[in-house]
């Protein structure tokens, strides 16, 4: 048993914990003032600012359209374990979640159709706002 432990320790070439947070300011957005059916695209853009791209700076089309503005903050946690020296496989565990997600959809007249805002911390998802069509 002791030899097995010694072998395991000897083969361990290192481990790492890393985390990547993107656009954490999305957590501060307030949507309570938005009135579905009344508030316009322009009012939302002026008060909340436009959504930032996520992940890559050229991702804008996914987050801005005539139908919706989508703010997204992501949180990626990664654990890596390297084993061995000459041949060194890496065991990686990684998980990305939408830590904060604000989606505002608009009708054809440019007025808010639906507001949703969710927050995920650990495994818990909290719906902070969900109003308008389909709510």
């Amino acid at each position: 048993m002791r030899a097995a432990w010694l072998l395991a320790v000897a083969l361990c070439a290192g481990c790492s914990f890393s985390r990547v947070r993107t656009n954490p300011e999305v957590a501060e957005l307030e949507t309570g003032w938005i009135v579905p059916g009344q508030t316009t695209f322009r009012e939302v853009a002026e008060r909340l600012g436009m959504p930032p791209p996520v992940g890559r700076a050229d991702d804008a089309p996914a987050y801005v359209s005539a139908e919706a503005l989508h703010w997204l903050s992501t949180d990626t946690k990664t654990f890596e374990l390297k084993v061995g020296y000459i041949v060194s496989p890496i065991f990686r565990w990684s998980r990305t979640v939408a830590a904060d997600d604000v989606l505002i959809r608009f009708d054809e007249a440019g007025r808010v159709r639906q507001v949703s805002r969710t927050r995920r911390r650990g495994g818990a998802v909290e719906v902070l706002d969900f109003r308008g069509e389909g709510a």
Binding site: C12, A13, G14, C15, S16, F17, S18, R19, V20, R21, T22, N23, P24, E25, M50, P52, P53, V54, G55, A57, D59, A60, V64
Partner: peptide, 17 residues
């Protein structure tokens, strides 16, 4: 630290529309 690594990346993006 020897075989142990910790790191954190904070990233933010913006755009002018």
């Amino acid at each position: 630290l020897i075989l142990f690594t910790l790191s954190k990346t904070n990233s933010a993006f913006s755009a002018v529309y």
